[in-house]
Design a protein around this nucleic acid. Structure first.
Lengths: 197, 197, 197, 197
DNA sequence: TCTTAAACGAGACGGTACGTCTAGTCTTCTA
DNA sequence: TAGAAGACTAGACGTACCGTCTCGTTTAAGA
């Protein structure tokens, strides 16, 4: 019935060592280097301990990413639409640009393509909360009459967030500091000469 | 030295069998299923033959994707900016939505994250040509005075193309048929109520 | 320092449960099945408790064998040489033929080959007492003048006991009921036609 | 149909390296040391190669024993019963006494107790041929009228062979050089004072 | 009766070896 | 000389036990 405190409790030391080792290996050599054996060896942990608490390498990677990403998705009070969005997109860009977290995200997106479990976890725990927060900003602007009536919020959010991942994954353009501002400006105001619209 | 057709010529049958087998396996079970052994077995080909002509699984996957993607990046003559962009983005969306090619692209993006060779090949042979063509459309519109002077072309292209990959890879929203049109409209005209800008 | 019975005394229940569980598992599936974890689980005992009282699986097996073998090595008074020996060899044969003890002995002999501790314990606690008792019978017969002067007692004992283990371990012939009598008869009288000797 | 010479042929080098490595490891540290990993590492061979050609460690051990045991079970022509038997038993005793083969046999007998496959292979390929050859010697003596009519051949063979394995496995007495002669003498002539029989 | 300390069950821990799978290479025969 | 077959070394996979280590929980002797 009551299973409280039966047996040796889980080792917090081991948990952290695994996540740190995984993060380090992922940054150094990606998923190729971050084998279960390598993670276990570097963490000074038995392989079975890892398998006991995480069902796959992907889950370890995901958790190690979250461990290294203590961001808050705060809503900025009293900020203009443009300011609020720029703050959010800029923060994410900084994270993806950071050599301590960007490479992790790249690997996680990769494993997510062959692991539906990771894919949905990534969507629910990472992508969605940020989109929901940004959508809230957009909706408030809409209520203030600052947006067109026919705005497609989902598409607008994609146009703000997607370029960051696109550049991270394909590497065709750098994730520089002014990108967030540019993206916000162009999605709010458009790129057409004003008289044309 | 002498490259005259001495000896048995390369088997076109084998080349195609490998690419078809790889594509099928990738669609059925992703990179996990598309092992070299599985590809060789299904293609009725020796493993060594594959290694002789392709340096890695990623390259086979990339080639199999191109084999299944006989698209032309034609420049539409006499089309408006909006029409031209919608045609391009829509075509790509269709390709990524197609169950015969979308899953291939997902797997290729995944392997590209741990194989710089694939990553650059993907960028040069796939991403760049489409961006160059679309940029050409934008530049012509700019010359016609249809665009603002401060447009960031790279960012604009990202805002058109990135959402497609974003949705393909993360699956948070469907790649539906009207997406291209929406993206084009919003990036050209912006989402702000007109008087505000 | 003070070894007064402070603290909880050793659980006799646990001791017996371990030996019973080990014996059962050994009979069912040999050493392969009788893992420490399986013994502990079946006995309803913590693994550490087993390690506290027995240094290895082999020792548990040996003890479980002795627990199931409550034989007396009684000296038969007033029996002839042949009767006394047949009684002893027959008793051992019966024990090794018994499905409740024979398989245990097989496994113990096996572990003894890679554990010198078990090997010497087996020799001292099991083999030697029986040999000493049987040798006593032989020596008394020799004092009565019933044996040749050049008898090698050790070899004679081997010729009585060894065939039982030989058949148990190699299985080339059954350990049937008349074996003891035959062994005794042949080692005492020899197999040669009488005139030849 | 005809599978002649298709593919790379089996490597004789690997086969021998495995058997040598296994034999060495078995002698040095028994089955505990002769893990598949250790054998593979010492032989400079992949583990899969071992599993491809041998179903278990026991089979490798058995084969390595046979490799190190190039004995002939020749039938000595024109020898007396006693000479013929002493030659055979003495040869086997020498082999079991040899530090290069005796320890191997000990380990093989041990694994045979938990692997029926090994047990039957050992019986058929090792024990039986020697017993058959020795039984032939006995039967010829019987035809010459040198043996009693009621001789139990199987038991007699056990009384000749079993003591060797008994001493090898239990270690209670040494396998010295005169043992064969003593065993033969006592089983043929018996140990009783002649007048008693 | 209350303290106290050893023994207990449960079960997590760092390891080692298991037997399997795939990678990428090599060697043979065949076309 | 390219290719199909398939054996090779190497090494990661996920599992099973090993023997050790905490935990909270008995259990009886001694205070």
């Amino acid at each position: 019935m009551d299973k409280t405190g039966r047996g040796r409790p889980r080792s917090e030391r081991a948990r952290l060592a695994v996540l740190e080792a995984a993060a380090d290996l992922l940054i150094e050599g990606g998923m190729t280097a971050a084998t279960m054996e390598a993670i276990a060896a570097r963490a000074g942990v038995g392989k079975a301990t890892i398998y006991k608490w995480w069902p796959s390498r992907g889950h370890v990677a995901l958790d190690s990413f979250f461990m290294r990403t203590k961001t808050t998705i705060a809503v900025e009070a009293g900020a203009s639409l443009e300011e609020a969005l720029t703050a959010k997109i800029g923060a994410l860009a900084g994270l993806l640009r950071d050599p301590a977290t960007g490479p992790l995200m790249r690997e996680i997106v990769a494993v997510a393509q062959s692991d539906p479990d990771i894919r949905s976890a990534l969507e629910e725990r990472w992508v969605r909360p940020r989109r929901v927060a940004a959508e809230q900003v957009l909706r408030e602007a809409a209520e203030r009459g600052e947006l067109r009536a026919d705005v497609d919020f989902a598409a607008a959010l994609d146009q703000l967030f997607a370029p960051l991942y696109y550049r991270l994954l394909f590497g065709h353009e750098p994730l520089d500091e002014r990108l967030a501002e540019t993206l916000v400006r162009q999605v709010i105001g458009g790129i057409a000469a004003s008289q044309a619209w």
